[in-house]
Simulated assay, not measured.
Amino acid sequence: MARDDDTATPDSTGADEQLLVLPDDLRHELKEPMGPIETDANVLLKTVDGPLIAVGDVVTYHFLRAGHPPDVAVVDERTKRQTVDEEIRETVTESTHLEAVNPPAEISAEVIEALLEGIAREEPTTILVEGEEDLIALPAIVAAPEGASVVYGQPDEGMVHVTVTDDHRAEMRALLERFEGDTERFWELLESANGDE
């Protein structure tokens, strides 16, 4: 995949530059759903009014089966730490547009760049993550436009639907500020995208 590395720092970390790491004391907070939970994709889609960002293979699969490809889908070929079954894997990765490395319990510069590129594109975009996509819902809520829907999977419960508002963005910013790592660089990446619009 061709990448524009003009914004990358000239050190040895390269494409998988680590930005943020989830601290242990935040893990329990992230288990709480950030919005209403729905089990039926068709019912959820009736409440979507604006761009749709899906984080997770099973969530993405349900939207594709409902005939509504997400504007951005972030998948990693896994669910609940296990490899997804072959039908789901083939369905969600059939049209992969971008790839990014994102280690478990981290948010990398590469995945943020891919997310921002996906949001900026006119056509539906699938991002295949090598590693784990679980935390990407957080920066997606910050980066998505007002009124967009960010949907992610809640294990054994269903799909969590967050309709992006300023309040949600502020909540996610406060949460992300509590991560360990280079928060300054993280915000620079997100804000450079917002400044380009």
Rank of each mutant, 00 (worst) to 15 (best):
40 D>S: 14
50 G>A: 02
36 P>K: 10
44 L>Q: 01
62 H>Q: 14
68 H>Y: 13
98 L>C: 05
106 E>T: 15
74 V>N: 00
46 K>H: 14
44 L>G: 06
37 I>K: 00
98 L>I: 09
107 I>S: 01
86 E>Q: 14
40 D>N: 15
77 E>M: 11
114 A>I: 11
67 G>T: 11
57 D>V: 01
54 A>K: 08
30 L>W: 02
51 P>I: 08
81 R>C: 03
71 D>A: 09
81 R>K: 07
41 A>C: 06
91 T>N: 01
91 T>Y: 00
75 V>C: 01
92 V>M: 13
74 V>H: 08
48 V>K: 09
59 V>Y: 09
68 H>R: 14
73 A>V: 03
53 I>M: 00
88 I>G: 01
95 S>D: 14
104 P>V: 06
74 V>G: 03
108 S>G: 12
31 K>H: 15
100 A>H: 01
62 H>I: 06
32 E>L: 07
93 T>W: 08
45 L>T: 02
96 T>Y: 07
34 M>T: 09
94 E>L: 15
69 P>Q: 10
67 G>M: 13
110 E>M: 13
83 T>W: 08
50 G>S: 05
59 V>Q: 11
69 P>W: 04
93 T>C: 13
113 E>K: 13
76 D>Q: 03
43 V>D: 10
58 V>D: 03
100 A>D: 12
106 E>Q: 15
58 V>T: 06
41 A>Y: 09
31 K>G: 11
57 D>K: 00
62 H>E: 15
31 K>R: 15
48 V>E: 05
66 A>G: 04
104 P>H: 08
52 L>K: 11
99 E>D: 10
72 V>I: 11
115 L>F: 02
98 L>D: 03
